[in-house]
């Protein structure tokens, strides 16, 4: 302080001179910044069976601790005819940032409809699955912030299920949970669908234990599993609740159900 009031030039620098450019960063970068993503919570789940695939998702949409709405579907029919996708055989579920999810759903719907228009036949699930991967990867450096699951019936009439990360890595699986309560539901599915950590009763102890082999489950068993998974997730995750939407894809079409969940 004394240097300021003494009248003598300061020791360092050019004295009282006016500097052409500031040497120090001017009072720090002050930016509020715009973050283009948000998390709208919710959870989705898909399980494939021998001749069907079940897709499910809760209908709550959140923003922080607020509930935006109690009914915002995360399951979308892809392809088919017209705005209500009549005759569609593919279902896409998206969870994460809802605006990106809606944009992705709309894009996939046009792609699948254009495919039928251009090729004269409906797209196969495997082709649709690969295309979805490309669509996600195309936005690799500004991704659609969603976890997508695609379900349908493959060329052999078997249930097909594909799961994705936000940048397009994908894999065909028997079952997959995504979204807010994925970490709660997925272990349950591993145990109940793929029979992980299950052994044949009375097969002995230690190395004698025989692993219980996974096999495709009947449809009503899978429906019950889905309902159990969600009622449990609702108890333990605040972003999951309000309603459970299910779509069951078979060779005859898509059956849609809605079951209320706890709204607390």
């Amino acid at each position: 302080m004394s240097a300021i009031f003494s009248g003598a030039p300061p020791q360092d620098g050019l004295g009282y001179s006016f500097k052409q450019s500031p040497t120090a960063v001017p009072s720090g970068e002050r930016q509020h910044g715009f973050y283009p993503y948000t998390d709208n919570g919710g959870s989705t789940l898909g399980i494939s069976g021998a001749d069907f695939t079940i897709m499910a998702g809760d209908t709550r949409s959140t923003h922080g601790y607020n509930i935006n709405t109690r009914y915002a579907p995360k399951l979308f029919k892809i392809g088919g005819e017209g705005p209500d996708n009549k005759g569609a055989r593919i279902v896409l579920s998206v969870v994460g940032f809802a605006a990106d999810g809606d944009a992705l759903q709309e894009k996939m719907d046009t792609i699948v409809k254009m495919y039928k228009y251009q090729h004269g036949k409906p797209i196969t699930v495997s082709a649709c699955a690969q295309r979805l991967s490309h669509v996600l990867y195309n936005k690799r450096f500004f991704p659609y912030y969603v976890h997508a699951i695609l379900g349908g019936i493959d060329e052999d009439g078997k249930g097909a299920l594909y799961s994705y990360d936000p940048v397009g890595s994908y894999e065909r699986e028997q079952c997959r949970a995504a979204g807010a309560a994925a970490s709660l539901i997925m272990p349950f599915l591993d145990n109940q669908v793929n029979f992980k950590n299950q052994y044949m009763p009375g097969s002995g102890t230690g190395h004698d234990l025989k692993v219980r082999q996974a096999q495709p489950l009947p449809r009503n068993t899978v429906e019950d599993l889905v309902r159990d998974a969600f009622t449990s997730a609702v108890e333990r995750h605040i972003e999951v609740g309000d309603g459970l939407q299910m779509m069951i894809i078979t060779k005859d079409g898509i059956e849609e159900t809605y079951t209320p969940l706890k709204r607390d």
Binding site: A3, Y16, F18, K19, T23, P26
Partner: peptide
């Protein structure tokens, strides 16, 4: 230095924020 005349003194007010 004429370009400094009439300007806030750097040593008092800090470098000018351009």
């Amino acid at each position: 230095l004429p370009q400094a005349w009439g300007r806030p003194r750097d040593d008092v007010y800090g470098a000018y924020d351009h």
